[in-house]
Amino acid sequence: MTDGSARRFARPALCVVKVGSSSLRGHDGRLDRGQVANIAEQLVAAQQAGTRVVLVSSGAVAAGMGLLGLERRPTDLPTLQACAAVGQGELIHEYQQVLARSGRAAAQILLSQDDFVRRGRYLNARTTLRRLLELGAMPIINENDAVATEELAYGDNDHLAALVASMLDAQLLVLLSDVEGLYDADPRTSAEVGLIERVDDVDALDDASIGGVGSYVGSGGMRTKVGSARVAVRSATHTVVADARRPGVLAEVVEGGAVGTWFVAQPQRLEARRLWIGFALRAHGQVHVNDGAVHALRVGGASLLSVGVVHADGEFASGDAVEVRGPDGRLVARGLSNYSVDDLRRIAGRSTSDAAEAFGSGFAREVVHRDDLVLL
């Protein structure tokens, strides 16, 4: 048990746990049934101790790889989807065997990006998950890999877990991985590394120093975990990255113990619509702006105007999500564009009044209104 005075945070009422592919695959290429059972037993113990749990589990592709005799993760989409279709049944079966021994039911939920983007589906998914928790079942979520395309291309179950945590107002997100946490240097290339135990400002981290893709089994990496932490902490959700194979890791984390890397939750939750714009929607293009626009957005809290736009790329229509990037290429914000990419290119660098005079009153609008903009 953790001394209450030394706890990082109070025991959460609701916790979302994500476990990655590399933490569930054995040396023989098949699903590591012992590790799945270990994770499931820890989840049951957390529930028995008073914390409701939702699991986001990778592993379907890894399980399918073993069953199909593949030694390395495929790179082509059809084979990835075939592996997911073959492996998903084995994955959920292994969890259910352990949960059944404690009188609990596993509820398989397969989600895609549309379930967070389309409001009707979002509300339905949230209602279903909440009801499952009320009934004592354990939701086990994975991306709908067998039919989805973009999700497999990005391998972003970390991001999915953060969105689920936000959806359910969870107090804690636990990202279980094959590493101990976030290090101050790359352990693969540096002999002297130290674990970063606490991150108070995730936006202050240097992206260049954060590791990318991890083991070949999974498609995520520390960069996706840090990105997921950015989503979660803005939802007032504490996030911990820890080693999935550490004995009793979940109990230690849930009790607020000093395990892994703790990303401290922001005290105020970003409103749901801004979370949706900033993190759930796929960006269809980029709007490149000058230093004046960056200053106006970051310091002045202004809308993005055409006079500050240098150029735009991608394929987006009015109402689509876009990234706003400064002169150095760094991401400044995400927002909903009032213009298509072609129209925005026509008015880039012009004042709003000049654009309206040249092309009509329909161009007397902001490029992105501040209410539709999320600074990143």
Score class of each variant (00 low, 15 high):
219 S>T: 15
137 A>E: 06
98 V>N: 03
23 S>I: 01
68 L>W: 09
333 A>C: 05
183 Y>W: 13
172 L>H: 04
77 L>R: 07
158 D>T: 02
58 S>G: 06
206 D>G: 08
114 D>G: 15
315 E>W: 11
13 A>M: 00
183 Y>Q: 09
9 F>R: 03
89 G>F: 08
142 N>I: 01
245 R>K: 14
139 P>E: 00
211 G>Y: 00
168 L>K: 02
373 L>T: 07
7 R>Q: 10
99 L>G: 03
346 R>T: 08
115 D>R: 07
22 S>N: 14
124 N>V: 06
248 G>H: 05
49 A>I: 01
200 D>L: 10
226 V>F: 03
376 L>Y: 13
195 L>M: 10
169 D>Y: 01
180 E>C: 05
235 S>V: 00
169 D>K: 11
22 S>C: 07
264 V>G: 01
312 A>K: 03
202 V>A: 14
121 R>D: 04
353 S>G: 06
34 G>L: 08
175 L>W: 00
50 G>R: 04
177 S>P: 10
304 L>T: 08
205 L>P: 04
274 R>Q: 13
82 A>V: 13
49 A>Y: 00
145 D>E: 11
226 V>I: 15
304 L>K: 08
55 L>M: 14
18 K>A: 00
20 G>T: 03
338 N>R: 14
55 L>E: 05
58 S>C: 08
254 V>Y: 00
194 G>A: 14
251 A>V: 04
176 L>W: 00
284 H>I: 02
102 S>D: 15
70 L>T: 06
19 V>Y: 00
251 A>S: 15
124 N>E: 10
25 R>C: 12
158 D>M: 01
110 L>C: 12
208 A>I: 07
162 A>Q: 07
325 R>W: 03
56 V>K: 00
188 R>D: 15
155 G>M: 02
82 A>E: 09
15 C>S: 03
19 V>T: 04
360 G>T: 12
260 G>K: 05
27 H>L: 14
83 C>H: 12
335 G>P: 08
305 L>F: 11
166 S>L: 05
57 S>V: 02
137 A>W: 03
294 V>Q: 04
136 G>S: 02
340 S>F: 10
13 A>P: 02
223 R>P: 01
270 L>T: 10
12 P>K: 00
27 H>D: 14
364 A>N: 13
123 L>S: 09
151 E>T: 12
126 R>M: 11
65 M>K: 11
1 M>L: 07
127 T>P: 02
263 F>Q: 09
145 D>A: 07
316 F>E: 03
53 V>I: 15
133 L>M: 08
268 Q>L: 13
73 R>H: 11
63 A>Y: 08
43 L>R: 06
207 D>E: 14
43 L>K: 01
241 V>S: 02
69 G>M: 11
191 A>R: 15
336 L>C: 06
14 L>S: 05
61 V>K: 09
58 S>N: 05
192 E>P: 01
23 S>M: 04
210 I>Q: 09
312 A>G: 05
7 R>C: 10
168 L>Y: 04
270 L>G: 03
261 T>Q: 03
291 D>G: 11
255 E>I: 02
